Computed example of a mutant assay.
Amino acid sequence: MALRLSLSSSPSLRSLPTNSPPSVGPNRKVDWPNRGRTCGSVSREASRTVAVRSSLEIAAPAVGSVTEVNKDTFWPIVETAGEKVVVLDMYTQWCGPCKVMAPRFQELSEKYLDVVFLKLDCNQENKSLAKELGIKVVPTFKILKDSKVVKEVTGAKFDDLVLAIETAKSS
């Protein structure tokens, strides 16, 4: 997901008067620090630069949590992880065993703070990435190191997943 900033095409910013702040409720006003200054328009190139920088900022997963990814964000996050172990939970919304594993996967992310934990909903939108990673059943857990899959656990096998993470970390 890339964040795009284009001040010239934003109707809310374009329609604001520059000499007074917008009203936010009865008898309340927002104090604008740069009141009276105009922003002008942002070029298409500047818009792309902001989009790239924002996507890199968004790509950094939080430590001790599980980050939802899609076909566009998965590989950039894996590459950013470098030598860290990355664990990907490939699931679907309708899968019962996936729902059972979700809170346990979250617990693992809080336990292994040096590991990156990701989730990928294998829906129609992400079908190409699921196919690229060779998914056949859900849940499937892919363990990656140096941007390569080093282990795989299929099914709701928590103990096998912990063992695979430990093995990947020690290698």
Score class of each variant (00 low, 15 high):
residue 53 R to M: 13
residue 73 T to N: 04
residue 99 K to Y: 02
residue 38 T to A: 15
residue 26 P to A: 15
residue 45 E to S: 14
residue 166 E to F: 04
residue 124 Q to L: 14
residue 2 A to D: 10
residue 155 G to K: 09
residue 14 R to C: 09
residue 71 K to P: 00
residue 37 R to D: 05
residue 68 E to N: 08
residue 23 S to I: 15
residue 28 R to A: 15
residue 117 F to L: 09
residue 156 A to D: 11
residue 3 L to H: 07
residue 147 S to F: 02
residue 123 N to T: 06
residue 58 I to M: 12
residue 152 E to D: 04
residue 5 L to T: 13
residue 90 M to F: 03
residue 105 F to T: 04
residue 136 K to P: 00
residue 11 P to Y: 06
residue 51 A to P: 01
residue 19 N to H: 10
residue 9 S to P: 00
residue 82 G to N: 11
residue 55 S to L: 08
residue 128 S to P: 00
residue 74 F to P: 03
residue 3 L to G: 08
residue 168 A to P: 02
residue 5 L to H: 01
residue 91 Y to N: 11
residue 105 F to L: 08
residue 40 G to C: 05
residue 85 V to Y: 01
residue 47 S to D: 11
residue 46 A to D: 10
residue 79 E to V: 11
residue 40 G to L: 06
residue 85 V to I: 08
residue 89 D to K: 05
residue 60 A to S: 10
residue 74 F to H: 05
residue 165 I to N: 06
residue 10 S to F: 00
residue 9 S to D: 06
residue 62 A to E: 13
residue 146 D to H: 11
residue 54 S to D: 10
residue 154 T to K: 12
residue 58 I to E: 11
residue 149 V to N: 07
residue 161 L to C: 01
residue 141 F to I: 08
residue 36 G to C: 04
residue 53 R to E: 10
residue 50 V to L: 14
residue 148 K to W: 03
residue 133 L to H: 03
residue 153 V to W: 02
residue 69 V to L: 03
residue 62 A to L: 13
residue 17 P to E: 08
residue 76 P to F: 03
residue 91 Y to L: 10
residue 127 K to A: 15
residue 118 L to E: 06
residue 4 R to D: 05
residue 155 G to S: 09
residue 105 F to R: 07
residue 53 R to L: 15
residue 148 K to A: 13
residue 9 S to W: 01
residue 85 V to A: 04
residue 24 V to G: 09
residue 148 K to E: 11
residue 62 A to D: 06
residue 59 A to W: 01
residue 122 C to Y: 02
residue 157 K to Y: 05
residue 55 S to Y: 04
residue 148 K to P: 00
residue 72 D to Y: 10
residue 134 G to P: 01
residue 16 L to G: 04
residue 128 S to E: 13
residue 97 P to Q: 04
residue 29 K to G: 10
residue 51 A to K: 01
residue 145 K to F: 04
residue 100 V to A: 09
residue 83 E to D: 15
residue 123 N to Q: 06
